[in-house]
């Protein structure tokens, strides 16, 4: 899922303070699961804005709400008209939601309340870990199910580099060396020899480096639009 983190409140306040009528809009999918932007966080953030506004003697009317997903038209249909009545929508969905709403809401600005981080898993309660780089060309079969793009600080395809220290990455003792893990995993799988081959330079054009990406599933398209 997509993992994000709420922006620091000071930053949010700087964005929001000039607006009179503010809607804090949560998204009850990925970003809710990481407790950054669901119904609950929208509610709490609205509460904080009200306290701050009162203390700063700023007149601000703050509402809050959440929809199921801020990345699909249908979920916006019932609320879009209402959202357009605000001076500002502070979306605490991932950046996808901010983009998506911004393109549909008309003149109302949509600001982000969340820093979108990564595609991650939840290895244990309260921990969210980046596990996939969304590179557009998966190599996990070659690397024992451990993504070198997302989990190696240098995205090496022929790791490890010289920075591995006691199984940790040179960037931080808190980061496992992905290539250390890859080697251990491949040993466990009995396929270490796969790593002996040099992986050639990658074609990054299927990743973001090929420009913004789009996936079209032909059989799901609107019939009229297709015609």
């Amino acid at each position: 899922m997509i993992v994000g983190q709420q922006k620091k409140f000071d930053e949010i306040w700087e964005m929001v303070k000039g607006f009179r009528k503010v809607m804090v809009l949560g998204c009850n999918t990925c970003i809710a699961v990481c407790h950054a932007g669901g119904d609950k966080e929208a509610d709490a953030l609205a509460s904080m804005l009200k306290i701050k506004a009162a203390n700063e003697k700023v007149s601000m009317d703050v509402s809050h709400g959440a929809i199921q997903r801020q990345c699909e038209n249908e979920f916006f249909t019932p609320v879009l008209e209402d959202l357009a009545k605000y001076d500002l929508v502070l979306s605490i969905a991932c950046g996808v939601g901010v983009n998506f709403l911004s393109a549909r809401i008309g003149k109302t600005p949509v600001y982000p309340g969340v820093n979108t981080q990564f595609f991650g898993g939840v290895p244990k309660p309260g921990f969210f870990e980046e596990l996939c780089g969304g590179c557009g060309s998966c190599v996990l079969n070659l690397t024992g199910g451990i993504c070198p793009i997302a989990r190696c600080s240098k995205s090496l395809m022929n790791g490890p580099c010289g920075g591995t220290n006691k199984g940790k990455c040179e960037v931080s003792q808190d980061i496992d060396c992905a290539w250390f893990l890859i080697v251990e995993r491949m040993k466990q799988l009995g396929t270490l020899e796969k790593l002996f081959e040099v992986q050639p330079p990658r074609d990054w054009s299927g990743s973001f480096h090929g420009g913004p990406r789009r996936v079209v599933v032909e059989h799901l398209r609107d019939i009229e639009e297709k015609q």
Partner: peptide, 13 residues
Amino acid sequence: NVYDVDTCQLVGI
């Protein structure tokens, strides 16, 4: 950072 290619790949290039 860039890391378009890694050391092995750079050597190969």
